[in-house]
Design a binder for these strands. Structure first.
Lengths: 213, 213
DNA sequence: TATAAATTGTGCATTAAATCACAACCCATG
DNA sequence: CATGGGTTGTGATTTAATGCACAATTTATA
């Protein structure tokens, strides 16, 4: 996942597209029909030139003098990101975090469905959380291959995250969102993204000093 | 927060330090005393040269021929990031997410204490979650100024996030970790970081195509 | 219809980030 | 104590990302 992406569109550009999509959807909810790179940039704290250049990688979506038709651009970005369909996502770990993820209502409208929870605690197996059924961790090997599932979120303690990852990779998962505070090792064709709130907090405390001159 | 940081150490470097710290702490747990930029790089998927250069911004922490003394480096990084103390963090929103955050045991050992929950639901006020007391949202104006609190996490629905932000800024919060799927507008001296799992998922679905040539 | 204001898409210039490569150094070993 | 293998810190170089600035175009308005 390091080499392949580079000779086409920069990954950093791809990473901004979901932010554009999110802001555009919000504008839509506010009843707006048209926007400009300038307005979008102001909302996102990104320069207008960058937004125009990013979007131009995928075609001329705007109109000179007018701006961007929001509905049209939203559809185009959904197409580029492939979220104009629904992706099944497996969540590993039915603790507080896995539970919060399962109950959160914000996935579906943005292209994802939390389809299964997996947990090592056999007490939880068979129950469901927010209408997401809980399976045994051992069922990863059957449930995932038997269904169309290429994405997973890891919400287990750090010490189990690598083992879970290897199991997921083995059954064909290609994208992993890891909430465990640990770096994962995966094959080149598997992509991992990380969420660790402490990393963000520690990043910010650096600037909480009075001597930044 | 855009201009000031730039003439000293690049923000992108600061952003990697928490990852180094996390990996080093892990090595420590594994009983290791010494490591090298190479080993660290392998674990993190970052080049060894980059790690050396990043660290060299803050002084020569390593020893040629030997590598880095882990305990020493951990202490240095903690100092740089200012996490060799404990920061009070307010969490706004006592829903599933705020609840999971409050119960999570991983903050304290890394420099943070979830000290207060604030929620609009008066039913919840006075109770506590994971030993974190719940206050009324109105109490933000008194509790935060009366205590040493410069950081907050936002775990409320998107439509309330901007209003909550403004309230937090008004009482002196300088660092905000926002879980609501919306871009926030803040003064220049306030830093915001974002966590939106859908943004990560959408980033990854771009690469879930078979025609990446 | 003519004019003015707004906006895109993009070639070019600039700035920033990452990598290379090596002198200086440390340590274990014989 | 000399040698060889390993490692850092960093100047030089390369690569990547961002910002600038403007021709081309659209729309509103008078």
């Amino acid at each position: 996942m390091t080499l392949k992406m580079s000779n086409r569109i920069p990954d950093i550009v791809i990473g901004r597209l979901p932010l554009y999509l999110r802001a555009l959807t919000r504008l839509q909810q506010e009843g707006r029909d048209v926007t400009s790179s300038h307005e979008l940039g102001r909302r996102l704290g990104i320069s207008s030139a960058q937004i125009r250049k990013d979007l131009s990688h995928f075609g001329g979506f705007g109109k000179q003098g007018t701006g961007y038709q929001i509905e049209f651009l939203v559809e185009k970005l959904r197409g580029v990101l492939q979220v104009n369909r629904e992706w099944n996502v497996a969540v590993i770990g039915a603790g507080d975090l896995g539970s919060a993820i399962s109950k959160y209502g914000g996935f579906e409208e943005r292209g994802f469905r939390i389809s299964w929870l997996f947990d090592a605690d056999e007490e939880k197996v068979g129950k469901e959380i927010g209408s997401v059924p809980i399976f045994s961790i051992h069922d990863i090997d059957t449930v995932i291959p038997e269904n169309d599932c290429q994405m997973a979120m890891i919400a287990v303690p750090a010490e189990h995250a690598q083992a879970v990852t290897e199991r997921l990779v083995k059954v064909g998962v290609r994208s992993i969102l890891n909430y465990a505070p640990i770096s994962l090792t995966v094959p080149d064709d598997v992509m991992v993204q990380y969420i660790d709130p402490v990393v963000h907090l520690q990043h910010m405390t650096y600037y909480l000093r009075d001597d930044l001159d």
